[in-house]
Structure formats: structure tokens, C-alpha cells
């Protein structure tokens, strides 16, 4: 009995020391981690909607995606929409920038776990730049309007679907807002 208590106390002491160390490290790095996450997301927003200086998260009635309105000074210069279409082996989380005429201005994949060497090539600029300038009235079909990535039809189609959702949601948002 005495032995069990001794072992338990020893283990407890180790846990307390380790928890204390972790708390200290977390206090030192926490703010930096948060700032990093925010800076990298802000950077991505700016990347897909060049020219915009600040962004505001706006709610869109009926749209499931997250929408950010971009401003230069007080002037609204377009939208950035975050969508996550289902690809071959993961959700492809992407940001798409849309100008006031509701045409794609830029896009960026935030995270995906598609097959390396095949589906993961949706991150390549060569594939993504095909979407630039597409509007809500354009058809966006892989193998017809968009050159799909060889061996990755499903991933390519997912990105097309994502862009379509973005354009649809942006239109809805514009209609809802006078």
C-alpha cells in the first residue's frame, strides 16, 4: 500500500513539473502563434484580391461559405469567399477572390491532402490561372472549359465546383445587399 502511494506521488510530481514547463512555453509562444495564424490568413486574403487593403467578414443569407468583403479605403473592391469542396481524398480548402463584376480575380488553396504528384497539383499556378476571369455566367466544366490535371479528374472537378459555388454565393450576396 505504502509503495503504491509513493509511486503515485512520484508520478504526480513529474506531471506537475511537466505541466508547469508546458504552461511557461505556451505563455511565451501563444501570442506569436495566434499572430502568425492571423497574418497568414490576412496575407492569403490580400493575395487573392490584389488591391484590397482591409477585409470584413460579412454574413450572406442562404450562403454556406464564409464571405469577406475587401475595401480600399471606404470603397468596396470585391469579395473573397472561402469554400471547401470535397476532392478525391480530402476537403480542398480554398480562397477565391471575386471583383465587383463577379469575375474570379485570384485563388489560393489553403489546405488539401490530395494524392501527391497527381491531385496535389491543383496547387500549381498553371492549373489555377485557367479560372481567372471566369464569371457566374461562364460554364466551368473540367475537360471542356478547364484543362483537368492528368490523372486527377476528381480533384480538378472539385476545384471547378468550388469556384462555381463561390460565384453563386457572391451573386447571392450582391443581390441581398442593395
Amino acid at each position: 500500500m505504502g509503495k503504491i502511494i509513493k509511486l503515485g506521488v512520484t508520478l504526480g510530481v513529474f506531471c506537475v513539473i511537466s505541466a508547469g514547463m508546458l504552461a511557461y512555453v505556451f505563455m511565451m509562444t501563444g501570442p506569436r502563434i495566434e499572430a502568425n495564424a492571423k497574418a497568414s490568413f490576412d496575407g492569403s486574403l490580400r493575395e487573392v484580391l490584389p488591391g484590397a487593403e482591409s477585409f470584413k467578414n460579412v454574413a450572406a443569407p442562404g450562403a454556406k461559405s464564409e464571405i469577406y468583403e475587401g475595401y480600399t479605403g471606404d470603397k468596396a473592391v470585391g469579395l473573397v469567399v472561402k469554400v471547401a469542396p470535397r476532392g478525391y481524398s480530402s476537403e480542398i480548402v480554398m480562397l477565391v477572390g471575386v471583383d465587383p463584376e463577379l469575375r474570379v480575380k485570384g485563388m489560393k488553396i489553403l489546405s488539401q491532402r490530395e494524392t501527391p504528384g497527381l491531385g496535389a497539383n491543383v496547387e500549381k499556378p498553371k492549373f489555377q490561372k485557367q479560372f481567372i476571369g471566369k464569371g457566374v455566367k461562364d460554364t466551368i466544366e473540367p475537360k471542356k472549359d478547364i484543362d483537368a490535371i492528368t490523372g486527377a479528374t476528381i480533384s480538378s472537378r472539385a476545384v471547378c465546383e468550388g469556384v462555381k459555388t463561390v460565384l453563386k454565393d457572391s451573386e447571392q450576396y450582391r443581390k441581398a445587399k442593395p
Partner: peptide, 14 residues
């Protein structure tokens, strides 16, 4: 696991 978590935080921050 303490070392791993420290490493995880530091890499995330820097």
C-alpha cells in the same frame, strides 16, 4: 510528450 509539445509550439511560432 513534454518535449514534443514544446517543439510543436516553438515550430508553430517561429
Amino acid at each position: 510528450s513534454t518535449f514534443v509539445t514544446v517543439c510543436d509550439y516553438v515550430m508553430q511560432a517561429y
